[in-house]
Simulated assay, not measured.
Amino acid sequence: MAAAGDGPWLDDAAGRLVRPFTVSNGRTRPTVALDLMSQVMATGATPLGYLGPEHAQALERCSVPVAVAEVAAHLKLPVAVTKVLLADLVDCGALTTKPPVFHHNPTDRALLEAVLDGLRRQL
């Protein structure tokens, strides 16, 4: 059954009734280089042209700097689809992006081993 206010596009048992690739019009590659930790933020500019409801939801989420992965989780969409949506918003000037800032070496062996150990404990 659809939850109140969700409309016909969600079903508790089946989940999202619209396939993710339809949200991005079948596109799988963003026009802007984004990774999971890239920060995106709304510029305040009004996007021109039609944007889908997912674009509007993403734009609302980006009122403060937020990581691409966090936007994807909030929208409950695959990261690849979210990157395409966010790239659309960057292309129309509604979002700005900056690469992640690492205060340490992201390929540090000790850090990677700590992450691996944490993942093993979860399993």
Rank of each mutant, 00 (worst) to 15 (best):
G15W: 00
E113C: 07
T82M: 05
Y50D: 12
D6H: 14
K98E: 07
L10S: 15
L51G: 15
A45F: 04
V115M: 04
V90C: 13
P78N: 03
D91H: 02
P47A: 10
D88W: 00
K98P: 01
V79P: 01
G5N: 05
P100R: 12
G52W: 08
L123N: 11
T46N: 09
R120A: 10
S63I: 13
L36H: 10
L75N: 01
N25H: 13
A3F: 15
G44L: 08
H103P: 01
F102L: 09
G118L: 05
T28G: 11
P100K: 08
Q57T: 06
A13R: 15
T31I: 01
A94R: 05
E70R: 12
F21G: 03
L59N: 04
A33M: 04
D6K: 13
V115D: 07
T31D: 10
M41A: 14
R29G: 01
E70G: 06
T107E: 03
D11P: 05
A42H: 02
V66A: 06
V115P: 00
A73T: 14
V18N: 01
G7Q: 08
P99R: 06
A80L: 03
E60P: 02
W9L: 12
L111H: 05
L10H: 13
L75H: 02
Y50N: 10
V79L: 14
L59C: 04
P8Y: 00
A42F: 00
P99I: 00
D35E: 13
Q122A: 12
P53N: 13
P20T: 07
R109W: 03
C92M: 04
L116F: 07
H103D: 12
T82Q: 03
P65C: 05
T97F: 01
